[in-house]
Nucleic acid binder design. Structure first.
Lengths: 218, 218
DNA sequence: TTCCGTCTCCTACTCAGGTAGGAGGCGGCG
DNA sequence: CGCCGCCTCCTACCTGAGTAGGAGACGGAA
């Protein structure tokens, strides 16, 4: 019994982030994506997701109105609002529109996943505890765990991704991993293709915004 | 009871600046200088300073490793890290290495002096969290009030920086700000110079790791 | 065994990004 | 007034990044 998810956000990087995050979860499936409100309403009607991850700020139709229309057509749907801001003035309006909960785009991944499951279960998720990032994660195990939370990418691609996210150049990455920079380029091309990103700059933004390699080995 | 200081920085201008600044303080004395990490370790061993003002980026041996070695040899020494605006990873690593605090090279003089005295007294100074908050605070200064450019970047450069941090290309930034992409390039060159960064990728990492523009208007 | 995915490396090419240097306009300040 | 900092824009140039396409090696799965 998997949770069917629709991701509606106008930033492709955000969508890519969620795709990547959710791909690692066997019980969650992204059945469609939308880059604006109208598209979200349309796809919700056609794919009948259990949960809609909905950005508020979107072209064509904002997330609030989209939420109203989706719920008007399908009151079994659950909408989880994505916000950047802690103190969003839209919060109350979104609740009135029928949203089931809120998540911050830069909440830790586990929290996002938990939020999706809770909402899919029919419960409301009111004001997720805005846990401040704990910075002091000094002691950290290198990388013994085989299953990385991020799927799609191969192990080697993840290695490269981590180094990209730290601002390293291709040559530096090559030195770090003991491979040539042409090989690094190959991996990067694959990473960008898989995540639908334009260049390494977007990859860095994605990595940091999703808190991907957060408490990594420095 | 004067505080004995060792200044370790590869830029002679910086050393000269500290020399001049500290010369005016009766209770502080610069007992030695070093232009690289090895020299710093050596001089620390020979002069036994109370406080080492340590740059991170130095030839031969970087400030982190130099810090470790100095503290291994003399655990009464206190190391104050000098940073222009460095990446967080350095901050954590420096703390792990045993540094007692951080100062920005362009902090106001009184602050630098205060930092030296505090650290000499055995107390730690400015947790990274506080540093972050401080930095984030004045970069978030409201638009109309042109504040003293303590942090070097002009308002326009800050505008560009924010957009870089979101992964935009030069052309996109130009469109967003209604300026040509050559102008964008000009600003970026200045930003990179001022913050001592290699390219926009490092700028993105810096922005995110310091939480610079976190509650930004997307 | 064959096939496939992964990892490695290569050439050749295009293009965005960054540097260097100059220049004009504008507003504030001594 | 003149100077200076900021913002704007330009040309010319060089390099790193990314694409395209191919290839060999290895190990696991069918």
């Amino acid at each position: 019994m998997t949770v069917r998810v629709l991701v509606a956000d106008d930033q492709s990087m955000v969508r890519a982030g969620f795709r990547m995050l959710l791909a690692g979860e066997p019980d969650i499936e992204v059945v469609a994506e939308a880059s604006n409100g109208l598209e979200a309403v349309d796809k919700a009607g056609r794919f009948h997701p259990n949960v809609v991850l909905m950005d508020i700020r979107m072209p064509e139709l904002d997330g609030l109105e989209a939420t109203r229309r989706i719920l008007a057509a399908d009151n079994a749907a659950r909408v989880l609002i994505l916000t950047t801001f802690d103190l969003d003035e839209y919060v109350y309006e979104a609740l009135r529109a029928g949203a089931s909960g809120f998540v911050l785009k830069d909440d830790p991944p586990e929290q996002l996943l938990a939020a999706i499951r809770v909402v899919a279960g029919g419960e409301a998720l009111l004001s997720p505890a805005i846990t401040k990032r704990v910075i002091a994660q000094f002691t950290r195990t290198p990388r013994p765990a085989p299953p990385p939370a991020v799927e799609e990418l191969t192990q080697r691609e993840l290695d490269v991704f981590r180094l990209i996210a730290r601002g390293l150049s291709n040559a530096e990455i090559g030195r770090e991993l003991y491979i040539s920079d042409t090989t690094v380029k190959t991996h990067i091309t694959h990473i960008l293709q898989k995540l639908d990103l334009r260049d390494r700059v977007q990859a860095v933004v994605l990595a940091h915004e999703t808190g991907l390699f957060e408490a990594d080995g420095r």
